[in-house]
Every structure is written in C-alpha cells, then in structure tokens.
Design a protein around this nucleic acid. Structure first.
Lengths: 147, 147
DNA sequence: CTGACTGCAAAATCTTTGCAAAGAC
DNA sequence: GTCTTTGCAAAGATTTTGCAGTCAG
C-alpha cells in the first residue's frame, strides 16, 4: 500500500502537470478516502469533512469536483449503488470486486484470480478492449441473515 | 424463450394476485421490452411508445411506475449505466453479463459458466446469501476501435 | 359502482454550473 | 499580479409523488 507521503507527492505532481493548484480542500478529500478504507457517497464525504474540520469551509460542489478529478486520475474509483448515487473509495489498491448487502448496505471486497483470468479471455473473444470491469454480488450478508 | 401469449397470461395473473389492474399502458411497456431485446432508459421507452402509438396517451411517470412494478416481479431487470440512470431489459431470459462500450454505449451480452460457478464458491466462503449479481465489463467495442 | 391507474405538474433528489470573492504560485 | 479554485445559490437532470379525472373489473 502506498504511503500517504508518497501519495501526496504524486498528487501534487499530477496537479502541477495539469496546471492545477494544490488546495486544502483537495487534500482533505484525498486524505479522507486514503484514511478511511471504505465506500462513501459524495454527501457522506462532505458531511464528515465538515464535522472533522469545523474551522474549514468546504462545499459539496468542491467535493464533487474533486472526486471527478481524482476518479479521472484513477486515484479513487466509484461504484454505483442502488437506484441512484455512487460511492467512492480510494482506488490505488489491488483490483477487487464487491459483495453488497441489500439489508445493511455493507460492502465487502474480494478478489478472485480465476474470474479475472476468465474476463480477459471473454473480452478477447469479442474483440473488446477492456478498460475496466465491475463485478457486484448482491445479497444478504452473514450478519443480516442471523437477524 | 417464453411466448408473448404465455407472458401476457402470467402478467395478468400476477396483477390479479396483487389486486392490480391490467391496463393498456402496462401492456405497452411489457410488450415493448419483450419485442425489443435490448436495453433502454425509461426516457427511451417513453419516447418510443409515444411515437409508435400516437393515438395512445402515456406519461413518463407511468413508464417509471410500470418498470418498478415489472422489476419487482423480475419480469424486467435493470443495469445502472454511466454516472446516473438505469437501463432496463426484458428479464425472463437466461442469466447473462454485459460488455458495455464507453464510446457508442452499445451493450453486448455474454454468459460464462465458469464465472457463474466461481461466484457461488465465493459467496459461500463469505457466508453470503446471493440474490443477484452483476458483472459489467467496460471498454471499447470492436467497431469503435476501428473508427 | 368502487377503488386502482393515469397524466400532469409540482416536488424531491442528486449533480453540475455561473459567478464573485479568495487563494495558490 | 494572474489565473485557478472555492462556496454559494441557482440551474439541470432524472425520478417520484400528489391529485383530480378516468378506467378496469
């Protein structure tokens, strides 16, 4: 896993390359996702940042803009969730898929090399050039089955 | 593949069971998805139905309500698409996964029994009770690569 | 007839955008 | 200083809801 210092350097370099500026708000969003290894909606990120940094001002629009920026650079990735809305997570980690519980909304990550291999074979069959893939298994998690 | 007559009977029975009424609008949506074996947004369905049946009145709200009803009965299924929005397709066919082209938006279906098997093994490992799963491979289709 | 269904328009979500002030470099 | 970024509020886009009239059974 990349260290936060390295991540921050990379992010600053990326910004510089594109003539973008390094701002406190951008750092806050990046740091939040780095430190909280979970999936959040833009709204959740916004609320938590406001709470954690009462003396800072940050707007929901900036959270959206920053997430779009980070996703474009593949530093964060998103997963669509339910009827509408997306959840974001820190993206510079090993590729993984998701188990999503419809009762409690919890998300568990998993990785299966057999499935990954198989996907490559499939796209080749179709002459398709894969840029990304998403596998979501939806159901009821262990805990919610007991309840 | 189920015949349209059987489908219609099943649908009517389903409605009756739930004290719902069989209406022309509900039939139109069902028929449209049955006859057009593709993926549509609610808006697309609405526009096409209006065009195909100029003498009928149908509202976008009814399309949404009907899709929700049909999805709840698993007669149609949906796939979330891009930033927001869902596409719907007729659902009473063999399970399959999707290849989605980011350039032209085309969707190709595929089925791979090895992946299906593997998913079952994974959920068992986690004690998860699977109700559904979605696998989307995103990329650039053959045609768009040439262009 | 009765209660569900429909279309319409208004409301509710969620996300993006315009703009003037503030901040990075 | 210049040019980007920000927060705010307004605008957009998509989906849902309230309601009075309409229609199925």
């Amino acid at each position: 896993m990349i260290s936060y210092e390295k991540l921050l350097d990379d992010f600053k370099a990326l910004l510089k390359e594109n003539d973008l500026k390094f701002t406190k708000q951008r750092e806050l969003v990046l740091k939040f996702l780095y430190e909280n290894n979970e999936h959040f909606t833009p709204e959740e990120i916004y609320m938590q940042l406001k709470q954690q940094h009462p003396n800072m001002t940050i707007g929901i629009a900036t959270v959206y803009r920053t997430l779009t920026l980070l996703e474009g650079s593949e530093i964060v990735s998103s997963i669509s969730f339910g009827a509408q809305g997306k959840k974001y997570e820190f993206g510079l980690k090993k590729h993984h898929d998701h188990l999503i519980c419809v009762k409690c909304g919890s998300i568990v990550e998993f990785y299966d090399s057999l499935i990954e291999e198989r996907q490559k074979i499939i796209v080749d069959t179709f002459g398709f050039q894969m840029t990304d893939h998403v596998m979501k298994i939806v159901g009821i998690c262990k805990d919610c089955q007991i309840k």
